[in-house]
């Protein structure tokens, strides 16, 4: 399993932030359908978090059906396309909501927001391969 990117700032419950990071890795395809998830200890050491906290994040994803335990061989990303598509939509919707909220806080109205997003998309059209980067926030030290 490739090295994962963790985004932790500490102000909201860590298990939620860890679950968010894992969802993004799954949705982006960094850890795609059927991919084996490393052990709790390995993931915890990688993210430098407590194993119990990581366990709780994995439990959330398992409850959502995004990952599943197969016998004794470990946890795997689901291959259920419906669940993956639904999760992807939910996560992206919530990112879009954040973006709208941020633009609204500058006093932008609905029309201006649509225009800004369309313009930005056009500007970035050449480099869409980097789309994942646009969602990354710097990990706070």
């Amino acid at each position: 399993m490739a090295r994962l990117k963790w985004h932790i700032d500490g102000t909201s419950p860590l298990y939620i932030q860890l679950a968010d990071s894992l969802r993004r890795e799954i949705i982006s395809g960094a850890c795609g359908p059927g991919c084996r998830i490393a052990s709790v200890r390995e993931l915890a050491a990688d993210a430098k978090v407590n194993p119990n906290t990581m366990q709780r994040a994995l439990f959330e994803l398992e409850r959502e059906g995004l990952i599943e335990t197969r016998g004794t061989t470990g946890k795997y990303v689901t291959e259920d396309g419906g669940i993956l598509a639904r999760t992807r939509r939910e996560v992206l919707d919530s990112v879009a909501d954040d973006l709208i909220a941020r633009l609204s806080s500058f006093g932008c109205g609905a029309d201006e927001i649509s225009r800004l997003i369309a313009d930005a998309a056009a500007r970035h059209a050449g480099g869409m391969g980097n789309r994942e980067k646009a969602f990354e926030t710097e990990k706070k030290e």
């Binding site: 419950p13 860590l14 993210a47 430098k48 407590n50």
Partner: peptide, 26 residues
């Protein structure tokens, strides 16, 4: 703090707070 399950705040030789870390963040 990211590795902690729980924390104790200690002040003047007494426990000022004991809580699971994520519970306090929430």
């Amino acid at each position: 703090e990211s590795v902690l399950d729980e924390f104790l705040f200690i002040r003047d030789g007494q426990i000022a707070m004991q809580s699971p870390a994520d519970e306090a963040r929430e």
